[in-house]
Amino acid sequence: MGIIFEFPDLYLFPSGLWVTIQLSVVSLIGSLVIGTVIALFRISPIPPLRWVGTGYVELFRNTPLLVQLFFLFFGAPLLGIRFSDEPLEFNFRAALLGLSLYHAAYVAEVVRGGLLAVDKGQIEAARSLGLSYLGMLRYVQLPQSFRAVVPPLANIFIALVKNTSLATTIGVVELLKAGELIESRTFRTVEAFGSVAVLYLLLTIPMGIGVNWLEKRLRVAR
């Protein structure tokens, strides 16, 4: 490792890591919001909403993430969609959108499973009190599904963190790209990509630990 620290390009690691963190956090929130809405569509009493939900999940789960990113990156401008006039910002936003949309499909399936696992008697009790369908969702069905969805959601989000590395292919200078740049300038291949791997672990391992802690707390809360 010693010699690598003498290179001035090392700042690329923290800045790449920061971009990876931003990509991860924003797409995590994006996929959670979109995925929850799609899950609600999928269990909706209104058939057209259910069709939209099912179509979404099938489309985004059954095509490669890389293809989706390329589609957004190369295809969006041709369709007249400009994420930004500034090229780096354009790449970043295309990656955010792609990562959010793709992982939302997986989030939707998990959230749907959690919602369906709530006892029917709970829903009936809530409705019999005069709560509307949306009120019942908000105060009874969604909170009760929370416990069941935390572990599988965590797995999706760990995958999401790793999948942010694909953004490198559409010109986002995130952690992997930082490693590539350093490698190409120093020829320290093992050190450069080894460092990249370690930095990903620094993100994903605490997530796993955090989830275990949360799971335990949720179990006690009951």
């Binding site: 006892d119 008697g121 709970q122 009936e124 009790a125 019999s128 009760q144």
Partner: peptide, 12 residues
């Protein structure tokens, strides 16, 4: 008001 055989209290 409705009361059920299985109570159906909200566990959370």
């Amino acid at each position: 008001g409705m009361v059920f055989q299985s109570f159906n209290l909200f566990p959370h």
